[in-house]
């Protein structure tokens, strides 16, 4: 089955087209990959990136069987653009859409690892993994408050940024891989599960103040 996967939780907009075997042999083949880099512009660049990814692989949206999207955590506008794009495409094409924690797309397949991305405000979004499976998280906290558990290495932009505080050997890895998100969603994809609710993993409440005049 043909699966479009994309992630907008980092400074990159990344889309992968993945062929998922539906037979007994578990397997995924990446047919197309497209990435756009920039701190802003996710809303401008996501659909062109998806279109280019499909086009370069010789496919059109109507060929798709499912969509997998990174749900964050990450900058809110990017997450919203990603999830609402997944929802609208799935609705228009009559196919299911599944969300996966974006940090999963940075976790290596082997080893016990801390994944940390930059949450700004001197905080990190983080989760821990054993052989690609999430053990704890996702959470947002100051680097000094991260509980890396048994992790023996770390990866992600937040890990690099606060390497001195987190103090674990740093592995490569900057932006979540959409193809990796597909492997996390394999069960849902293969069983044809109904679409997820597609809610961003904000992990933070909206900044909003009740005006003084209304507090009394």
């Amino acid at each position: 089955m043909l699966v479009l996967a994309f992630d907008t939780s980092s400074a990159a907009v990344t889309a992968d087209l993945v062929d998922v075997s539906t037979g007994d042999t578990a397997g995924t083949t990446v047919l197309g990959h497209e990435q756009w880099l920039g701190p802003h512009g996710h809303s401008e660049q996501l659909t062109p990136t998806i279109a280019a990814c499909l086009d370069h692989a010789g496919h059109a949206p109507r060929d798709l069987d499912a969509i997998v999207v990174g749900a964050g955590p990450g900058p809110f506008t990017g997450l919203r653009v990603g999830l609402v794009t997944a929802a609208a495409m799935a609705e228009a094409l009559g196919i299911p859409a599944y969300d996966v924690c974006s940090l999963d797309g940075l976790a290596p397949a082997t080893g016990t690892v801390l994944v940390a991305t930059d949450a700004r405000r001197k905080e990190v979004y983080w989760a821990t993994y054993a052989d690609g499976r999430r053990l704890t998280g996702p959470e947002v906290s100051y680097p000094v408050d991260v509980d890396a558990g048994a992790a023996t290495a770390m990866t992600g932009a937040g890990a690099r940024l606060y390497a001195d505080v987190l103090a674990l050997p740093l592995l490569e890895g900057e932006h979540p891989s959409p193809a990796a998100l597909v492997t996390v969603a394999l069960d849902r994809l293969r069983s044809g599960a109904p679409s997820d609710a597609l809610t961003p993993l904000y992990l933070r409440r909206p900044d909003a103040m009740v005006p003084k005049a209304m507090v009394r």
């Binding site: 809303s43 609402v84 495409m89």
Partner: peptide, 16 residues
């Protein structure tokens, strides 16, 4: 605005 624009672009792309 970003939410509506993203949705509109996704509908336009998917429906051609």
């Amino acid at each position: 605005l970003h939410v509506g624009v993203a949705a509109a672009k996704a509908f336009a792309l998917s429906l051609g």
